[in-house]
């Protein structure tokens, strides 16, 4: 367990959180390498199936992150994302997934420092939580 390194998949929106990640990078802020960013145009396009697939493939944590409420480039995509996360938080725990493995945050384009902080917190939390059951079992 000591050397367990969690895999975290982060679906980040092009306009806010990805830009924040970019800012964190250009500002030379350090954050853990456990996070794999997937850039999407808007969190509103993150279908529940992407999250379910990532979990079943063994992702230890999943973050969906977009613009703050009211700031969505497409007006309301982040509100739709929030409903879908709510939905998944009702469904996934029924099958033994810890609800903490799925996170939703709002990180604005200028929040490079906050982005790095959240990634650090998230990696520490997932490390403490231990590996996702799907990685260890033949789940198909």
């Amino acid at each position: 367990m000591e050397d367990f390194e969690p895999v975290i998949i982060a679906f980040v929106c092009n306009w806010c959180t990805y830009t924040a990640a970019d800012l964190a990078g250009t500002s030379r802020l350090i954050y853990p390498q456990n996070v794999r960013l997937i850039r999407v145009m808007c969190t509103g396009m993150v279908d529940p199936q992407y999250i379910i697939k990532a979990f079943l493939e063994g992702a230890d944590g999943i973050l969906v992150s977009g613009c703050h409420p009211g700031d969505c480039h497409y007006i309301n995509g982040n509100y739709k994302a929030r409903r879908r996360i709510k939905l998944l938080k009702e469904i996934l725990p029924q099958f033994g997934f810890e609800p903490e493995r799925l996170r939703l945050t709002w990180i604005g384009a200028s929040d490079g420092i906050i982005f790095a902080e959240i990634m650090r917190d998230l990696a520490a939390q997932m490390k403490a939580l231990g590996p996702n059951e799907a990685k260890l079992k033949m789940v198909i």
């Binding site: 009211g70 509100y79 409903r83 709510k86 938080k89 609800p99």
Partner: peptide
Amino acid sequence: PLSVFREDEFDDVVGISAVI
């Protein structure tokens, strides 16, 4: 439910400190 939303709802699922 998935065809609509409200601006002010489900704040409990947002953030990384929230444990639901």
